[in-house]
Nucleic acid binder design. Structure first.
Lengths: 333, 333
DNA sequence: CTGTTAGCGCTTTCAG
DNA sequence: CTGAAAGCGCTAACAG
């Protein structure tokens, strides 16, 4: 075991003060070029490398950011793979390493956010991880955080989210212009902020086109095929348009249409906003919103590191997603 | 900013010694259940959480392992995505978090391995990252490491690698039994340990089947299509078998066969050991070795954490890969 | 700019 | 088990 060379040794070797060495290394105070060179030389000669824990203990800086993933999420999903790699690339571009916490129990996960509990300067939190009460509680002495997915309620965090409002608006306008005004939104559970965003946007559209919002918007707590079927059965007719929260609900619409002898794409248009099922298995192919998960990750990292450096600037980022119109809305092509 | 609660506060609250609190928390010394309970209660009440840097400074334990990726590697490749996720899952299963270093310059990357330079208990190193001289040099006061890919030379590190010896042996035997003994290995650069492993294995096969190793094994420094073409042109005939280091070389063999009017799969068999090109573009489809990158990652993590806990046990792990025989070796099906 | 000094919060040791 | 005290290696504050 080699003797550990410390800052004192360097100072001695270079013939300067210990604090000067520290100042050179951290760059926090001005040091003349001459002394700087001396110090650097001594560092090289002695093969000195600062101790991470010691400098962290006094400076509380690690150049590491964390990505917090809840244990109940399946990191095998392509979404996570993309997200992780994007965060990694962006972080390293900005001079940070990426520490991933996963699968530890969620309370521990959140404790990680307290000052000094983990070797991190900031953290990116996947939204399902956010237990609102607990976060609010921790928030007081918390490190910098960025949330992926819009946080619920009044929590004062920066976040990156899909621009659901714009997506619903764009998709609706497009479909209405081609199929007419008999458009329905089959939404998911209202407890999700995403559902409320979609509803809000749809309400605006309804106002614009004089559509009766109350009769054209449905909430499906379970977001299952059966719900999609049941809901659409009641209203489906030629030239109906269904915008569903996900593929399961869309599958229900497909069944309803088949039963009524309506052809998807020709007579009825279907569009799924979220991806929760193999879209490939739909016949005709299901229209959907394409998300660039990589952008979400890199934006989140960028935002976080800005926040770490510049202090508390809060400016949420919304990522546009791209509607892909396929055979299930063929008039759009 | 809330007052930071420290171990002293807990001790006071619980009415015990500071050192007792530490002993309870670290579990290094026996403490009676009664006191333990008192301490735990006090921790809860005061919402105490140990400071990472401070405990690291004295204990040098972080429960974090690192994955070191060289900057010149493209983490977008599926291989890395799989590897990262597999490491993450395995690490968290064993109670560790995963810190990924990427894109910093390689010297810094390696310095990370020194004791106390980074908040990590061990590291997994992707093999291309290993500058042998430097590693040997660092090795003396280095944290626990596992290398993915067999390290070159006499470096005393644990590693996880593909079982190239077995792969070549299996593929050769299979092909020889169906196409005959006119089998050729078009190998890549001998400076790679993987090439030497393949050659070694092929030599054994040659001995077993009385094949002239010198005339049946070729080294291609560039591993390009042109090399594959040139080399195979000289020897190709009906019932020849070509085992190539990668898809580029295989492409050359395809061209040579086409020129001689030999049908791939029927008259000539081709098998690519490594994946370095879109195998999908080959007609007929190219046979290849399928690797489970996830297994590589999780084995590496397992090995590393064993090493961290049990000390210096060194037992390299070889991962079997699975030959996939497609149309380019159709007799095998 | 120097040089000293006082921490950072925890672990460890050692005598009681 | 307690209690005091000595570090871990660095940063930061302050008087010179």
């Amino acid at each position: 075991m080699k003797k550990i060379v410390k800052i004192t040794d360097v100072a001695e070797k270079a013939g300067v003060a210990k604090s000067t060495v520290s100042n050179v290394l951290t760059g926090r105070k001005f040091v003349s070029d001459e002394l700087k060179a001396k110090v650097m030389d001594a560092c090289k000669e002695l093969d000195f490398h600062p101790n991470f824990y010691a400098s962290g203990l006094s400076s509380h800086k690690s150049n590491i950011i964390a990505l917090l993933l809840e244990s109940n999420e399946d990191v095998e999903r392509p979404f996570y793979r993309e997200l992780i790699v994007a965060c990694l690339k962006e972080a390293s571009k900005l001079g940070y390493s990426l520490l991933i916490y996963y699968n530890s129990d969620n309370e521990k996960l959140l404790n990680t956010l307290r000052q000094g509990m983990a070797p991190i300067d900031g953290a990116i939190i996947m939204s399902p991880c956010v237990d609102d009460k607990r976060l609010t509680q921790i928030q007081s002495d918390c490190i910098d955080c960025v949330i992926i997915g819009r946080p619920d309620g009044e929590i004062d965090f920066n976040y990156v989210d899909i621009d659901n409002i714009k997506l619903v608006k764009d998709v609706c306008s497009q479909l209405i212009s081609l199929y007419g005004k008999d458009v329905y939104l089959i939404n998911s559970d209202y407890s999700l902020t995403i559902s409320r965003d979609r509803a809000k946007s749809f309400k605006d559209i309804c106002a614009e086109y004089s559509i009766d919002f109350g009769k054209h918007m449905f909430e499906s707590k379970l977001s299952c095929e059966a719900d999609g079927y049941e809901i659409s059965c009641k209203v489906i007719k030629k030239n109906s348009v269904f915008i569903t929260a996900n593929g399961f609900l869309a599958a229900g619409v497909y069944r309803a249409a088949a039963e009524k002898g309506l052809k998807i794409g020709e007579d009825v248009a279907v569009f799924a906003l979220g991806r929760s099922q193999q879209h490939g298995s739909f016949k005709p192919q299901l229209s959907y919103a394409e998300q660039d998960y990589g952008v979400i990750g890199s934006k989140a990292v960028e935002l976080l590191i800005n926040q770490i450096n510049d202090g508390g600037i809060k400016e949420p980022v919304l990522i546009e997603s791209k509607p892909i119109f396929t055979a299930s809305a063929k008039k759009c092509n």
